[in-house]
C-alpha cells in the first residue's frame, strides 16, 4: 500500500515511536500493519503466524488420508468440510503474515525446505477411523485452548484471523466427539479402536502445549507484547481439566495412571511428559515427518503448471481488453 502523499513532519526518532508502541500495548489496543513496531515483535510474529499457518496446511494430511475411506457419505461430507476448513485457516494466517512483510510463496518454500516448522502433532499417523474422531476431540480441543486467547493477540490481523478460526474450530471438536460417541455405542471392536486411538494421541496432545514455562525463554517477551496471553503450563492444565470429564462421558480411559483430581485446587494432576519424544519429533524424527513434507512438496511442484497457466491466461485476457 502506498504512503499518504500529504506533507508529513520529519520522522520522529525511534524512541518516540517505541513509546507510542508501548503505550498502545499498555492500553490493550491493537497494533495494525502500517504501525511502527519493534523488529523483534515483527519477526517473532512472522515466525509464530507462519508456523501456525503451516500447521493448518500440513494438518490436512492426517485426516485427509481418510477421505476416501470414510464409512458413510455423512462422515465423508463432514470430513471434507473439516479438511477444507483447515486449508481456509492456513490461508487466513498466511494473509495475516503477509501484512508483516512476509511473502506467501516464500513461506511455503521455507516450510518445504524445513527452515520453518509446523506442529509436532501432525507427524503422527492416523491408523484407524477412530483417529479422525480423536483428532477432532483431543487435537482440536488442545488447539482451541491455545487459540481462544489468541483472539486477543495485540496484533490486529492475527487476532481477527483467530476469531474466524475459533468459530470454525468448535465444529471440528464437536464432530470428533460425536463420531467417538457413535463408535462407543457400537461393537466391542469399535470401542477398542477408540481406546487405542486415545492411548496413542493423549500424550502427543499434551506435548502440543510446549515445554514447561521454565524451559521457554522467549515467552516472557511474548507475554509483555501481548502476543502470547498465557503460559504453556497453564494452557496444558486447562486442557486436562476440560478433557477428563469428557473422557468419562465417552467411557474411555486416559492412559495416565497418575491422573487424579487434586481436591485442594480442584484441578487434575497428571504424570510426567516424555519431552525427549517432542524433541525428536520436532527435530524431524517423528513417524511421518518425511511423508508430510514430501506430499506438500509434490503438491507445490505438481500444481505449478496450473499456477503458470492461469497467470498466462490472465495476462492474455488483459492484453485482449487493452487492444
Amino acid at each position: 500500500m502506498s504512503a499518504p502523499t500529504l506533507d508529513r513532519p520529519a520522522a520522529p526518532d525511534e524512541r518516540a515511536l517505541q513509546e507510542h508502541f508501548d503505550a498502545t500495548i499498555a492500553a490493550d489496543k491493537r497494533i495494525e500493519p502500517r504501525d511502527w513496531m519493534p523488529e523483534g515483535y515483527r519477526t517473532g510474529l512472522i515466525r509464530q503466524i507462519a508456523q501456525h499457518a503451516h500447521s493448518e496446511i500440513i494438518g490436512m494430511q492426517p485426516e485427509g488420508d481418510w477421505l476416501l475411506a470414510a464409512p458413510s457419505l455423512r462422515r465423508k461430507a463432514i470430513l471434507l468440510a473439516k479438511v477444507q476448513d483447515e486449508a481456509g485457516h492456513g490461508m487466513y494466517l498466511y494473509s495475516a503474515a503477509e501484512t508483516l512483510g512476509a511473502d506467501r510463496a516464500d513461506l511455503t518454500d521455507k516450510l518445504i525446505e524445513r527452515k520453518q516448522k509446523y506442529s509436532s502433532i501432525f507427524n503422527y499417523p492416523t491408523l484407524t477411523f477412530a483417529d479422525v474422531g480423536v483428532i477432532g476431540w483431543l487435537v482440536d480441543g488442545a488447539a482451541i485452548c491455545n487459540q481462544v486467547p489468541l483472539c486477543r493477540s495485540s496484533y490486529g490481523p492475527y487476532a481477527r484471523a483467530m476469531i474466524r478460526v475459533c468459530k470454525e474450530e468448535s465444529f471440528h471438536q464437536r464432530q470428533g466427539f460425536e463420531l467417538l460417541m457413535t463408535m462407543m455405542r457400537g461393537t466391542e471392536a469399535q470401542r477398542a479402536m477408540v481406546q487405542d486411538a486415545v492411548d496413542r494421541w493423549w500424550w502427543p496432545s499434551l506435548m502440543m502445549f510446549g515445554p514447561p514455562d521454565v524451559d521457554s525463554p522467549n515467552s516472557a517477551q511474548s507475554m509483555a507484547w501481548g502476543v502470547k496471553r498465557h503460559g504453556n503450563d497453564e494452557l496444558r492444565q486447562r486442557f486436562v481439566d476440560m478433557t477428563v470429564p469428557q473422557a468419562a462421558v465417552l467411557g474411555v480411559t486416559l492412559p495416565d495412571p497418575e491422573l487424579a483430581l487434586d481436591p485442594a485446587t480442584g484441578r487434575y494432576r497428571f504424570g510426567p511428559i516424555d519431552w525427549s519424544e517432542l524433541k525428536a519429533v520436532i527435530a524431524g524424527n517423528g513417524p511421518c515427518n518425511d511423508e508430510r513434507i514430501a506430499r506438500r512438496r509434490a503438491a507445490r511442484d505438481g500444481n505449478a503448471w496450473v499456477t503458470e497457466a492461469a497467470t498466462v491466461y490472465a495476462a492474455k485476457r488483459t492484453q485482449e481488453h487493452a487492444s
Binding site: T43, G44, I46, R47, Q48, I49, A50, Q51, H52, S55, E56, G59, H89, L93, G101, A102, D103, D106, K110, K115, Q116, K117, Y118, S119, S120, I121, F122, V139, A142, A143, N146, Q147, P149, L150, M162, V165, M207, M208, F209, G210, P211, S216, P217, N218, S219, S222, V227, K228, R229, H230, G231, N232, L235, R236, L278, I282
Partner: peptide, 21 residues
C-alpha cells in the same frame, strides 16, 4: 524456544528460524 500459542501446538519460534523473503 517453543511457543504453545501457534494454534495447533508447540513448534520452534527461535531466532534461528528465518522470516525474511
Amino acid at each position: 524456544d517453543l511457543t504453545a500459542e501457534g494454534g495447533h501446538g508447540a513448534v520452534p519460534t527461535g531466532a534461528e528460524v528465518p522470516v525474511e523473503p
